[in-house]
Amino acid sequence: MSKFKRVKKYKSDEKVTAKTFLKPAIYLLPFILGILVFTVYPFFNAVAISFKEDYKVISDTFSGWGLGNYQKIFSDPTFIKAIINTTQYVLVVVSISLVISILIAVMLNSVEKLQGLFQTAYFMPMVTSSAAIGLVWRWLFNYDYGILNYLLSLFDVDAINFLNNPQYSMISLCIYGVWSMLPFTIILLLAGLQNIDPQYYTAAKVDGAKTIDIFFNITVPLLAPTIGLVAIVNMISSFKVFDALYMLFGGKPGPAYNLYTVIFYLYEQFYTKLKLGYAAASAIVLFAIILLFTMVQNRIQKKYDYY
């Protein structure tokens, strides 16, 4: 029934000899090499560094193994604040962008004419340089001339100092985060929607279902596997939020250094303070958090395997 059958695992009848092993190994080598140098080695090195006491990067020396780095960062209120900020950001941005994206994707899916044009339009931000986008958003958020404040003024709302008032900086960051997450999310959801057999909609219509019934009873449940996938991917990427922050607030973590995220903390420890041990330890903590969320997600996801 389903278009996508799971691929079964078959063992090749060919015997593995040095010769049959060598050829595919050569094909795979460039990729494996890249992964080893740029992903695997740095990962294990970071784990190692995070346990090295008083690690000095220039001389590559340390005084011994231990949990000192972890003790240090967990007693640093900035780091705790960074974890809280990041988690808040992730929860808000991932959930709001999902809801908006589902609505837009469903609408896009029902548009018959110019669908390609709309898809391209929604996809544009993905292929635009983030530095340029950051600049544009700084203008949109501008206190005196920004279009957002102009729109608010139409509703008699006083101008908000999005970028310079610490009270609003988290909101500004989230607005930007939601916006930048939309294209990728919409495209994936649209692909998911197009995999739903239109016959279910016809069947539901014959059963008397209205558009809203169909949306909640058919579309959303059948889209759930895609929604779950997108949620995981978005969660992982937004836990690593950094460039949005850097761009919006001109290289500072918020107007009053109030908006540290884990990666910004890491960046600062690494580049500004040259505390590689702290940076590595905070990276490992973030890794653990993401791993935990992903595992929970995966567990929930298993329930939605219909086909």
Binding site: M1, S2, D197, Q199, Y200, T202, A203, A204, D207, G208, A209, K210, D213, N217, I218, P221, L222, A224, Y304, Y306, Y307
Partner: peptide, 23 residues
């Protein structure tokens, strides 16, 4: 329908109930 078009996310009971739920 020719290929039945049963809603894959619903149980048999939920499938049969669906037209009544809508009503």
């Amino acid at each position: 329908f020719q290929n039945y078009a049963l809603y894959p996310h619903m149980t048999v009971l939920e499938n049969i109930c669906f037209p009544l739920k809508i009503k």
